[in-house]
Design a protein around this nucleic acid. Structure first.
Lengths: 129, 129
DNA sequence: TATGTGTTATATATAATATATAACAGTTAG
DNA sequence: CTAACTGTTATATATTATATATAACACATA
């Protein structure tokens, strides 16, 4: 299963859905043109209301990852995602600042973080055919 | 000023306070034994309720960054922070997974992320005397 | 025509966040 | 000893975010 929801997580369900689909695109499991389950189908599958799925889809659409076609369905359309790289770098830079601050206070060497980054890139990109 | 609050941020105020103090510790601006403002003083300074400051202090205490002495005050005590490095790496690894997923979909090369990491380490550690 | 899309509307419930006010108990400086 | 300052506790209120529930709508398609 592509998506697994942790109902006890501090992270909202619609965000877990969003992140799972982005990870699917990054790893190549989801490619341009691929259809996503309908909001009702996915909602039933993972035990969540259709509006929660819809919220995730709307977010993904606004971020340039998918295309929603009313009455037809929802499809991966990540070709334009790269155009928003600037905005992503700004947001992730702010997140990273918080993470690195804490890393320093916990005596975590930068090499550990670099290794983590490489491992994640390899793990995700490695799944591409 | 060490702390500046963005009231329009999606990030909770008590988290902004927490992150600001962790960044202060990382950069060396706050060192072991240094007193923090009282919950009332800091609250008044940044235009926030004392309970919001107290929530941030309680969180920082639970994370091993500060020591709260009832009736006496609150002080930096980050010596034990390194003991929680394992928990930090697990949490940050999950966050990083989300970030790197999006980076790949936006065609952001890993070198850009590595550079960002180094820049943050240099910026924060560079302020230490 | 029937089914399946996303969409909109309305209502409800819960939890997180933040403020407000007051009082308490212990410390400390005068 | 007193006054001022700590963090703490209690209570109440307000707002927002999250999530669900139910129903209906408009459009596409087999």
């Amino acid at each position: 299963m592509l998506l697994s929801i942790d109902f006890g997580s501090d992270q909202p369900i619609y965000m877990q859905i969003r992140n799972g689909i982005v990870a699917g695109i990054a790893s190549g499991q989801l490619q341009d043109g691929d259809p996503l389950p309908s909001v009702r189908t996915l909602g039933t599958d993972i035990g969540v209301n259709l509006h929660t799925v819809n919220k995730a889809y709307k977010l993904l659409q606004s971020e340039g990852f998918i295309e929603i076609q009313r009455s037809r369905g929802t499809f991966i359309h990540a070709g334009d995602a790269a155009k928003n790289a600037a905005g992503f770098l700004q947001e992730s830079g702010s997140l990273m600042h918080t993470i690195i601050s804490e890393a320093i206070t916990r005596n975590v060497d930068r090499a550990v973080i670099h290794h983590m980054i490489d491992h994640l890139y390899d793990e995700l990109e490695g799944e591409k055919s």
